[in-house]
């Protein structure tokens, strides 16, 4: 297309490598730590790779803590939260973006208020409500709370994406005589897909990583989620079992990577360009 200066490409690569290093190096360090013996972790010898590779940290992490069980709890919770949140907030976000007026004002006001008010002060009333509904110490209760707590974000993001879709496209559709649902399904939804995927990823991660609500709402060890289990590597007075914690964290990252790999293809597929043109 247009001519570009010769130095743009190399600069772009330089920047990309810079990002790669910044993002990747800490991870590399963590992975390396997970293969180091406790003796090596407690030495002043700074090496990128373990001098002596050991798998005891992984064995320790798997044996000592219910890592697999809590990972599958987390997975169930995160996936369900993701699906429910997106399903429930999509129509509402559309309404927020398209119907100006009081609804929008109230909606936006609540979104901001709910995000700004310290979660810590909501814990006690929330706990009492869940107990009244007999939902404390259940994964279902946890999911409902996560859906509620991720909704402000997904509502706000989705309404942002909806606003970004030119209204003429919808109007053109309705002029053609298609009904509202068809317009939404055929025109709006495909355009919105990247936004939906991004929002879905967010809700997944938010539920996957959440610690505090899970800590106070979940009692039974067999319902424990991953962040709770990982925290058990931190003992009295904040003493950390570095090796097993690193190993546990490395293992814990794998499931979300799989989800990401699946979703991120959809995030930026060639499919979208076609949809816009079509």
């Amino acid at each position: 297309m247009n001519q570009r200066a010769w130095f743009v490409r190399p600069l772009q690569y330089l920047a990309l490598v810079g990002y790669l290093f910044f993002l990747g190096f800490p991870l590399l360090w963590l992975v390396s730590a997970s293969f180091k013996s406790s003796r090596e972790l407690y030495s002043l010898n700074v090496t990128l790779l373990p001098v002596e590779w050991t798998f005891t940290n992984f064995a320790d992490a798997l044996e000592r803590q219910n890592l697999i069980g809590s990972a599958s709890n987390s997975f169930v919770v995160a996936i369900t939260t993701m699906v429910l949140t997106v399903l429930v907030s999509m129509p509402a976000a559309y309404a927020l973006a398209r119907f100006k007026g009081r609804l929008r004002a109230v909606g936006t006001g609540w979104i901001l208020l709910s995000q700004v008010f310290p979660t810590i002060l909501l814990i006690l009333p929330l706990f009492l409500i869940l107990r009244t509904l007999q939902l404390n110490d259940t994964l279902f209760g946890l999911i409902l709370v996560y859906v509620t707590f991720t909704m402000p974000f997904s509502l706000w993001m989705l309404q942002g994406y909806v606003s970004a879709i030119p209204r003429d496209l919808e109007e053109a559709g309705s002029m053609d005589g298609a009904n509202r649902i068809t317009v939404l399904r055929v025109i709006v939804f495909p355009l919105l897909l990247p936004g939906i995927i991004a929002t879905a990823m967010f809700t997944f991660v938010a539920a996957w990583n959440e610690f505090f609500l899970a800590l106070v709402l979940i009692q039974s060890p067999e319902l424990s989620t991953l962040p709770l289990t990982l925290r058990n590597f931190i003992g009295v007075a904040g003493a950390v079992d570095l090796g097993p914690l690193a190993a546990g964290s490395v293992l814990a990252t794998i499931p979300s990577l799989v989800v990401f790999a699946i979703l991120q293809k959809k995030l930026t597929g060639g499919l979208l360009a076609g949809a816009v043109k079509g």
Binding site: I123, F211, F212, L215, V216, Q219, S220, P221, L228, R231, N232, I234, G235, V236, A237, G238
Partner: peptide, 10 residues
């Protein structure tokens, strides 16, 4: 019932 030290106060 097993719990952990981290966050136990809360």
């Amino acid at each position: 019932v097993q719990a952990g030290w981290d966050g136990i106060y809360d």
